[in-house]
Amino acid sequence: KPRTPFTTAQLLALERKFRQKQYLSIAERAEFSSSLSLTETQVKIWFQNRRAKAKR
């Protein structure tokens, strides 16, 4: 499955949200993903990867 190329605007929004909160609830994820027109899975995986990156 090819990787999702996120737009610059989407990445900025994701990073901004991540700075506020490293873990999203299911409801927050649903709302946030639709506002960015991404799937919930894409947002979930992005947050997982971003948390892993923050640990390094």
Rank of each mutant, 00 (worst) to 15 (best):
T39F: 03
Q20H: 11
F32E: 05
K53H: 14
L12K: 09
F47Y: 06
E28L: 01
K17F: 06
E40N: 07
L14S: 02
K55N: 10
R51K: 07
Q42K: 03
Q20A: 07
W46H: 13
V43R: 03
K53N: 15
L38V: 08
A27E: 13
Q22T: 08
Q20E: 10
K53S: 11
E31R: 02
T4V: 11
L14A: 00
V43P: 02
V43C: 07
W46K: 05
R29V: 15
I45M: 11
L36P: 04
S33E: 00
F47D: 01
K53E: 13
L11M: 13
I45D: 13
K17M: 14
P2I: 14
K44E: 15
T41V: 10
Q20M: 08
Y23V: 14
S33L: 04
S33K: 01
L11D: 07
R51E: 11
E40A: 08
S25A: 06
S34A: 14
R3Y: 08
A52V: 11
I26H: 12
R50V: 05
F47L: 01
W46M: 03
A9N: 10
L24V: 02
A52E: 15
K44M: 13
L36H: 06
S25H: 14
T4P: 08
F18P: 00
E28P: 01
K21R: 10
R16E: 15
K17R: 09
L11F: 13
E15I: 01
T7V: 02
T39M: 02
A52S: 12
E15A: 01
R51F: 05
L11V: 04
T7P: 05
L38H: 01
T41A: 14
I26A: 12
P5S: 11
L38K: 04
F18G: 02
I45V: 11
L24E: 00
V43Y: 03
L14C: 03
R51S: 10
R56A: 12
S25N: 08
R16G: 14
F18A: 00
Q42Y: 08
R19P: 00
Q48P: 02
A30K: 04
R19Y: 07
R19C: 15
F18S: 01
Q22D: 13
R16W: 12
A52D: 12
A9I: 11
A9E: 14
A13P: 00
A30M: 11
E40Q: 05
T39S: 13
K21A: 13
K55M: 07
V43S: 01
P2Q: 10
T8V: 12
A54I: 07
F6T: 06
R3F: 13
A9V: 14
A54L: 08
S37A: 07
A27Y: 02
P5C: 11
Q10G: 06
A9L: 10
L12E: 12
F32S: 01
T8Q: 13
K55D: 13
A13M: 13
V43F: 02
